[in-house]
Design a protein around this nucleic acid. Sequence first.
DNA 1: GACCGGTATGTTAACCCTAACATCGGCACA
DNA 2: TGTGCCGATGTTAGGGTTAACATACCGGTC
Lengths: 357, 357
Amino acid sequence: MRARTPVTLADVAALAGVSQQTVSRVVNNLPNVSARTRTRVTQAAAQLDYVPNRLATSLARQRTFTVGFVTNDLSLHAPSQLTAGIERAARAAGYSLIVSIVPEDSLAAVTHAVRALRERQVDGVLINASMTPADAATLRRRLPDLPSVFMDVTPDTPVPAALLDQEYGARLAARHLLDLGHTRVAFITPPGQAVVENTREHGWRQVLAAHDLTPVAAVSGDWSPHGGYLAAQTLLAGPPFTALLVANDQMAVGALRALWERGLNVPADVSVIGYDDTPESALLIPPLSTVRQDFPTLGARAFTHLLAQLAGDPPPTPVVTRPELILRSSTAPPQTPDRAAVQDALALLARHLAARG
Amino acid sequence: MRARTPVTLADVAALAGVSQQTVSRVVNNLPNVSARTRTRVTQAAAQLDYVPNRLATSLARQRTFTVGFVTNDLSLHAPSQLTAGIERAARAAGYSLIVSIVPEDSLAAVTHAVRALRERQVDGVLINASMTPADAATLRRRLPDLPSVFMDVTPDTPVPAALLDQEYGARLAARHLLDLGHTRVAFITPPGQAVVENTREHGWRQVLAAHDLTPVAAVSGDWSPHGGYLAAQTLLAGPPFTALLVANDQMAVGALRALWERGLNVPADVSVIGYDDTPESALLIPPLSTVRQDFPTLGARAFTHLLAQLAGDPPPTPVVTRPELILRSSTAPPQTPDRAAVQDALALLARHLAARG
DNA sequence: GACCGGTATGTTAACCCTAACATCGGCACA
DNA sequence: TGTGCCGATGTTAGGGTTAACATACCGGTC
């Protein structure tokens, strides 16, 4: 059971009839080894199926070529896409990735996770957990010598970061709705946090405020389709609205459903706009207008940022990417509800009949 | 930049006025240390912010408490859920998880990834890549001393495995459709592989064959909603069908869309059944009948299996979990298309009008 | 008072590798 | 023939920890 890789440099050296150091040079492709020796060593290594022990290498080199990624709930779209992007970039640069999932976004939980990563001597950490600027700064202060990149914090947080400009994307979405002429708009907001600066909800409110508007109602969901469904039901029990801003596409799926159940047509009766642009969004009924966020690219960018810090040139400015508005068919100008609904049902009827000529 | 954790056991020992070994005992909570010494050491460690170097520990102990997870495309539902489940179980048992994403399921790619993990001295590996029994067996043979658990291989593959009984789930889905009275059924199959034993497609075909039926048509998709959409379009260009089996829910989203665009009502005109039960499935229009797979639990189970191997009692039987059929509203008995469509459109019209009473 | 068992602590040798220095032979040049 | 340089190789000393053994001390027993 133990004795996994009994084959060490010394074994290879013995077989090839050279010193350990020479084998090390060959394995690491260093110069100053004669061709003859090199092939002899290579053969010996192959023959013994030698696998270098990176633990020992790391200990000697004081460098592990491993980075840690701390993230919240991996079952959601964003974190899993992010993970994919980071892993890809890391692997390309010769790094391994240790992922650590924190059940909640508290400072304590993240600190704990980071400590475990430090014990494993990671060269740096990437942190995707939404933290207040104060918490992020505190955490950063606790790791003086560990390169780190934060994601999902606000742009003004004084830590190295790679971010999406969420507020900007949110403003895009809200402005689109107002441009269409909507005045009665409702929100399905992210869970937790009150309205803090630089969040999606904050962006929405800003745009509304610029038009002397306030949301008809705002209910928070838990990022899941079911959460979106419940939130939409709650909204539907309240005052009427013609436009709905949803904090992510997964919740929008639930919202679309709740609207449908109520007999409301999207976009004729209610315009809906999501956030993220998941692969299903383009194919929902109706196709969802949304704000596209490219998570894999963000992940890659964050890793590059970390690499820069490792190389010793920490770019102090946060790397922030602007999302993009994707217009599809879930948004339209507001209409008189009754006329719209009848129109629409008739159109559907016509289409059904036509389909079988 | 370097000199990350200059604080070592020796530093703590010096400050506390004891030997390294004593500090080691305190840090690892071993017995035979007096209470007085223990607190002195604890204080010294806290004062210096000592962080143990797990690299050194692992080297000395010949055990890293790290496991590797090799998986294909993390952006899909299954792998990301699986990762979450494994990480959770691993963390609970004091293990860290290194994830390695392989761009393709080839034996070479997986072998390469596993080798990198071996260099990092992981205690074991979990492999989620669909491989032929032969490939899996070959791979297993290449790692004689490394505990491993395979997922996404067929149950008869002679390797330690934790599996979902895909064929069984597929049979459940197909049988449901036939029980409803459908005879003209089409497939949207997984990408790649021809029909091999113990796959979803194989399960479907078995059930059909038992009723002397063959599929009207079978087109493969790429697991994505868009892929499902394209596949459904292709099917719609061919001979008519009243039931559609789709290899996963994400593709089903696209299929539902394609059907809708064609003016076909689900389930009146075409029954659709998916696979996986993603969080959105219950809220689609219509709610999708599907086969539920519990990936987080599978992940946890796989990890437990690995732990058992590490403990020295390798259960030779693969751990296989049976999925469950979830009936919602996307399946119904076949109807005369025209009657159904008209009925349905009228119902919709009525509902719309009623909604504003 | 010699002997025992047991606890608290220290010392030494690994674990596998790399960095830094040391050595050796050959070749070119004067 | 000596000098100097350089490429090829070897030797030694860590990197931070643990396992195994060694030592010192205490209280109790006959």
